[in-house]
Design a protein around this nucleic acid. Structure first.
Length: 342
DNA sequence: TTTGATGATTCCTG
DNA sequence: CAGGAATCATCAAA
């Protein structure tokens, strides 16, 4: 991992025992605390000399230093100095508020049902999408399951990736903490410093997580737009619905403009939306007007059908009035002979 | 694969 | 904003 190496170098830089950490002030401070200057000077000399030695020698000296009676006191002073200089500068912008971007992504993933409880928002979103797409209940249920399957796929990828990231994050954090603990035996590292380092690592990983969330959101958006684009998945209305619409159209040929109430009624009867009814009538009017001859047969069929229906109704009600096709003006009515020809 | 049918969308007009 | 007209995209039969 590239970040890992970068972080590791940052680590040694941050906590490393450098010249700046061992400035003369700290030495003077030690003096003022009443400890022998010679002792401190010796220790510092030894520490600085370690870098010039071979590994074995360094290990031996490290051990010797670890056992030195002055070590705890010196470490605590050095920690204090570090705390007051290097870390206080770095720590200014460390109290980060929750990132609004990541919150937005989280909310979206939750709303789309990618994150959060297993079968919650996802099906709701799919249902909404299916409703918007229209079509018969059977069709929408097919699309519904299709949508859900795809969403579940995205969800699975998202969670497995997230898990991988979290695992990597905790592994790396552990690794760094162990390293720091190990190093804290030879150089002054306060618990606060370790805490900060962990926070830095977590921030790094959360920025990676944000990328994951972002691309997941994009995938969901693409899926939704595909799903909602009705033109891609046009389904013909079922036979019964077309019949109901045609019946209305031809029996109102003089004025084939259903009112809002009539549209709602038709929509309910056909199991489609009001806007689909509007579309259908828009298409039907224009296509009928463009080529009346082509629709002649259909017109005759429905004219006869409605006439028969009306006759039945009136016969049952014993009322011999109200003609079935009130054609007057508006769209040209078909003229037909009893055998169905013009 | 081709082609007509058809539902949806877009743009324009009154 | 509803409706007309043109067009698109898909379905389904040949």
């Amino acid at each position: 991992m590239d970040d890992q190496t970068r972080m590791m170098t940052g680590l040694t830089g941050l906590g490393g025992l450098q010249q700046a950490d061992v400035d003369p002030d700290s030495v003077r401070k030690q003096q003022s605390l009443g400890q022998p200057q010679q002792d401190i000077g010796d220790i510092l000399q030894q520490i600085m000399a370690i870098t010039d030695e071979s590994l074995d020698e360094a290990q031996a000296r490290k051990h010797a230093l670890n056992c030195h009676r002055m070590k705890p006191a010196l470490f605590s002073v050095l920690c204090e100095i570090k705390e007051k200089t290097v870390l206080s500068i770095r720590g200014v912008q460390e109290e980060d508020p929750p990132d609004p971007q990541i919150m937005r992504l989280d909310n979206m993933l939750l709303a789309e049902g990618v994150s959060g409880p297993e079968k919650g928002g996802g099906s709701a979103a799919a249902a909404a999408a299916a409703a918007a797409a229209g079509g018969s209940p059977t069709d929408s249920s097919i699309e519904h399951s299709d949508y859900r399957a795809k969403l579940a796929q995205i969800r699975q990828i998202y969670h497995s990736e997230l898990e991988k990231y979290e695992q990597a994050c905790s592994e790396f954090t552990n690794h760094v903490m162990n390293l720091l603990r190990e190093q804290s035996r030879t150089r002054p590292i306060s618990p606060k410093e370790i805490e900060r380092m962990v926070a830095i690592i977590h921030r790094k990983f959360s920025s990676i997580q944000m990328q994951l969330k972002q691309s997941t959101c994009e995938a969901v958006m693409i899926l939704r737009s595909r799903f909602l684009d009705a033109r891609r998945k046009r389904r013909n209305f079922n036979k019964q619905a077309t019949e109901v619409l045609n019946e209305y159209f031809y029996s109102h040929l003089s004025n084939p403009y259903p009112s809002e109430e009539a549209k709602e009624e038709l929509a309910k009867k056909c199991g489609i939306t009001v806007s689909q009814v509007s579309n259908w009538f828009g298409n039907k009017r224009i296509r009928y007007k463009k080529n009346i001859g082509k629709f002649q047969e259909e017109a005759n069929l429905y004219a006869v059908k409605t006439a028969v229906d009306a006759a039945n109704v009136s016969a049952q009600a014993s009322q011999a009035n109200s003609p079935a096709t009130p054609n007057s003006g508006g769209y040209p009515a078909p003229c037909y002979t009893p055998d169905g020809r013009l």
